[in-house]
């Protein structure tokens, strides 16, 4: 491994994902269907996540 920080960084990021997922589940409980087609190695691919759509609406990224 060229960069020693990658393992702890990835570990912390994946644990942070568990925290975010709870908030995500509570906040978007009824709209989770929109997330189904997002990229996943365990599941299906392709589809705009609602996060992307939300960023577009807020003008943070180009539509």
């Amino acid at each position: 491994m060229k960069q020693i920080w990658k393992l702890p960084y990835t570990f912390v990021l994946m644990n942070w994902a568990a925290v975010v997922s709870l908030a995500h589940f509570i906040r978007r409980g009824k709209n989770l269907r929109n997330e189904i087609w997002t990229v996943s190695p365990m599941s299906h691919s392709h589809g705009p996540s609602t996060a992307v759509a939300s960023m577009e609406r807020q003008g943070k990224i180009a539509a």
Binding site: L13, M14, A17, A18, V20, S21, F25, T38
Partner: peptide, 24 residues
């Protein structure tokens, strides 16, 4: 066979989705 995510942030989004699914 599938491709590895290009970066940790994409993997992060996948993980959020999967773990939200566990709550569901």
């Amino acid at each position: 066979y599938d491709k590895v995510a290009c970066c940790a942030e994409i993997e992060f989004r996948r993980k959020v989705r999967t773990l939200s699914g566990n709550y569901q």
